[in-house]
Amino acid sequence: MNLESFLLLSLVLFSLGLFAVLAHRNLIAVLIGVELMMNAASLNLMAFNRFSVTDPVTGQVFVLIIIGLAAAEVAIFLSIILNLYRTRRTIDAEQLTELKG
């Protein structure tokens, strides 16, 4: 597979993630969409790292940092979800409307 195929695959994955963030009501599904988008970006970086760069260290370090940051973000997201579930008994994005209007 060449560079263009990897870029296309990562684009499809990113679009799927974008759709998941926008279309789902369950907050956990939104989180999964965000993770899909971050993984698409990592795939993109690794593809460029392999095909377009002479020193392959930078891409790998970049992807490792992305994975670490994704872990931190998931931890916060999940604790917010737990807090929401305890206070409001729902994790439906349509019902969290306190700041509306």
Binding site: F6, L43, M46, A47, N49, R50, P56, Q60, V63, L64
Partner: peptide, 10 residues
């Protein structure tokens, strides 16, 4: 795919 792209560590 990361393995195919050359980095088993990642």
């Amino acid at each position: 795919l990361f393995l195919q792209l050359g980095s088993p560590f990642v």
